[in-house]
């Protein structure tokens, strides 16, 4: 970890002003990922702006009935918030599937969106990695890629986004509220994270001078048929090999609406709205879910150690859809 200076932001505008024009400054909130990466010599900010003093710690309904999650609310407080538990239980389930109780007490909602990949090579500075050092090459493509992506990969990077929370946010169609030098803007979650393409070093569409202020959940609740299924190498405290967030609504025995978001398979939470539309008005059967899974995974490309992922993802999709359907309330 290199030496750096540290200051505490006194307000949102102050934070934005502090970071504007300082490419090597970074915001720090929970710190659970940033400090780790600094210790590993992967990230080298020369100045940290602590935003923990900002008043972004509330969870409250907006006038139009949408729920605002402050960027600095911890993952634990979000998952255990009565309104989240009641109206967005998928989100609570996803958050509680991630990390550990201690980390969830530290990690914030904004920070969760900003998590970096857990790719072994991104972390190991003795190996090439285009995400860490653009142009150095991708060690995972011909290496140990058990945890790596199968969808939306590029020849430059096959890393996955490690978050559980973001997969649920994707299924819920959350919106990320950010504030920067140019003012406030809303970024739909689907446009927040990026695919690696030619610039794997850029994880998301947040500008350097922008600060995440909150996450807005739409009014629609989906608290009857939902499931966050996380498949991993041990029962807890492990990143997803594949995860599936499903919400669905039935009408007269057929699917009225379904959303299927996948984690552990791509550089961003993955959804295929075309396939979801295909399921509309179809009976909610294993067969239809399986066919939908095949369509979602049609373009899947594997790299050796992750050859099992399409089959696992298909089974996980079917299982999550079935469990969402059969959930007893």
């Amino acid at each position: 970890m290199n030496n750096f200076t540290y200051s505490q932001a006194t307000g949102i505008d102050n934070a934005v002003n502090e970071i504007t024009g300082h490419e090597k400054s970074m915001f720090i909130a929970g710190g659970t990922n940033l400090i780790d990466l600094m210790k590993e010599n992967v990230l080298h900010p020369d100045h940290l702006i602590d935003i923990n003093g900002l008043h972004l710690t509330s969870i409250e309904f907006l006038d139009d009935g949408r729920l605002f999650l402050g960027a600095l609310v911890t993952n634990a407080d979000t998952a255990w918030h009565p309104e989240v538990e009641k109206k967005y239980p998928l989100l609570a389930e996803a958050i509680l599937a991630g990390a550990s109780p201690q980390l969830r007490n530290m990690a914030t909602n904004g920070g969760n969106l900003m998590q970096r990949t857990r790719c072994y090579y991104f972390y190991d500075t003795s190996t090439p990695c285009n995400k860490r050092t653009p142009g150095s090459g991708c060690s995972a493509i011909n290496g140990y890629n058990r945890i790596h992506a199968i969808l939306g990969t590029s020849q430059h990077c096959i890393a996955v986004h490690p978050s559980d929370m973001c997969v649920a946010l994707r299924a819920i169609n959350a919106v990320v509220q950010v504030k920067g030098k140019a003012g406030e803007r809303l970024i739909p979650i689907e446009h927040f994270h990026r695919l690696p393409a030619y610039t794997p070093q850029i994880d998301n569409n947040l500008a350097h001078d922008e600060l995440i202020t909150g996450i807005i959940l739409p009014r629609e609740h989906f608290n009857t048929h939902y499931k966050y299924l996380k498949v991993r190498d041990r029962a807890s405290y492990a990143f997803a090999l594949v995860s599936v967030a499903v919400v669905l609504r039935l009408k007269e025995g057929v699917i009225d609406e379904i959303r299927i978001a996948l984690g552990g398979v791509a550089h961003k939470p993955w959804r295929d709205e075309g396939v979801e539309n295909w399921l509309k008005d179809k009976p909610a059967t294993d067969e239809n879910f399986a066919e939908a899974a095949d369509m979602i995974l049609q373009e899947a490309k594997t790299f050796g150690a992750n050859d099992f992922k399409p089959a696992l993802a298909k089974r996980a999709i079917v299982r999550a859809c079935r469990e969402a359907l059969n959930r007893e309330i």
Partner: peptide, 11 residues
């Protein structure tokens, strides 16, 4: 990881 002759999941 035989590319690097290194145990790669070292955490």
């Amino acid at each position: 990881d035989h590319q690097f002759g290194r145990f790669i999941n070292h955490n």
